[in-house]
Design a protein around this nucleic acid. Sequence first.
RNA 1: UGGGGCGUCGUCAAGCGGCAAAGACACAGGAUUUUGAUUCCUGCAUUCGGAGGUUCGAAUCCUCCCGCCCCAGCCA
Length: 567
Amino acid sequence: MNAETPPSPSNFIKTIIAEDIKTNKNDGRVATRFPPEPNGYLHIGHAKSICLNFGIAGEYEKGTCNLRFDDTNPSKEEVEYMEAIKADVRWLGFDWEDRLYHASDYFDRLYAYAVELIQKGKAYVCSLSPEDTKAYRGTLQEPGKDSPYRNRSVDENLDLFARMRNGEFPEGAHVLRARINMASPNMNMRDPAIYRIRHVAHNRTGDAWPIYPMYDFAHCLSDAIEGITHSLCTLEFEDHRPLYDWILDQLDVPCHPQQIEFARLNLSYTVMSKRKLQVLVERNIVDGWDDPRMPTIAGFRRRGYTPASIRNFCERIGIARRDSMVDVALLEFSIREDLNEKAPRHLGVIRPLKVVIDNYPENRTEELDAPLHPNHPEMGSRTLPFSREIYIEKDDFMENPPSKFYRLSPGREVRLRYAYFIKCEKVVKDKTTGEVIAVHCTYDPETRGGDSPDGRKVKATLHWVSAAHAITAEVRLYDRLFSKENPDEGTDGSHFTDFINPDSLEILTDCKLEPGLADTRPGDSFQFERLGYFCRDKSVSPTGHPVFNRTVTLRDSWTKISKKENA
RNA sequence: UGGGGCGUCGUCAAGCGGCAAAGACACAGGAUUUUGAUUCCUGCAUUCGGAGGUUCGAAUCCUCCCGCCCCAGCCA
């Protein structure tokens, strides 16, 4: 039922579950669930939870993981999000089979449980205004006061709750509260609201309900109804666990799942809350939920990340209870690792510099054979057209190179990948700006394919593309969205948007790629040799050219060396 | 200042009274290389937030201290 993922390391949750299996606590069953609220797109933090929940279930013969939408707040939730969430979970490689559920599936049963609670004297209708409710709640260090409505009779509560359900009251007039303890040091136990009036249509139940259950009431009961054994959630719900347990203890429920909390994922140089991601989308700071710079699953997909790379990343970061900030370099390692094996190699020049090979015949074109993957011959090969005028990367030429630079420069010989050795003879500059606009070279016909029969060596191999045959493309280079490792951690009045990296996107519109890249499809991934991994985008440039997104650069020790030299 | 958590390498993270304190990423060297990529070696915590204590023996148990996170939605 689950995607292939390497054997995963142990963590405290697996330890607990293994122990439960050993003691036959749930008849050997392991039932988890992934319970998103459909109020936004899934992000990499959700991927951690998905991999955990589906992953654990997948490790046991009697393991199951449900997909359950926690749709108890119709004013925030949308069908668009539900569809996107399902697509993302599937894309990640997980299968909920026939176990797609919604908290809203249980509204009737939840209502009956609420009635049961009232009948047992464990819940009451409170008619305090929201402001008064807040005032009565007390503070972190002072106990709250009992609501004046706390001792209404069971009959009156039953009547009022029935009328709430019938839509007889406006929003805010009443609320159903659990009758626990207004003096509890745990705020969640100070008679929390469990049903509120909302005259809002629900995307699945329509106008059937004018009241909706709160998270604390709906979640534990949904878990119990589904026979969940281990209810995994993030740390901020730890204080809710006593309430989770209290509700299940009062009621006649099928089972009592165990809630276990773990730390949520924080990734450096990005933000992870749905609210903040929504701000980025609404303010058009990014191009939508699937902007390749977004830490959403949809964003990573469009960026060219593979499901396996994200799953491997989630395995590597582990599961623990301490707050942490994972280095984005680990994610980058995970995608390089996967694409290095799978991505076919191609040549593409993103900042073209014209090279004329003076001793190469004017009208000649050759077809050169080039493997699609140097380490995997079984992937086959393609041919590369070669001619007198080619493009190389601007960065691969320097008129006055520093000592460590061993690419092309005046008088120097280098290899063109899978083609010929060329030697730089002359530099052509723009008369006014002094900018190098073309380079003249000679080639050695004896070096066809890239080997010299006389055994002479060159220090560098450059990627190139035949000027007459290249296709033009738009390439989008992405960098981290934020310039600060933790955008949430600004000084006094700062806002996370203050740290947006102004250079997070660079669009190159005149890139020259080997012709074979013309017949590729959106979503296809490649390595452009010496540059990085790129993924064909779904869009087309304003000029009608294909668009490629840079997923991640190759590891680059040259940049480090050159920076060191300049420092 | 009430309650609940958490503190092991630059970053994640194993470890649950007896290890020279896993592993990964990052980093630094070196080898191989028609990608300054990949691959391959090598190095990288005498120390587990601090101080005491228990014990033959402590990262693991106890005490105190310090630091960080969460909770006062009719959000989830």
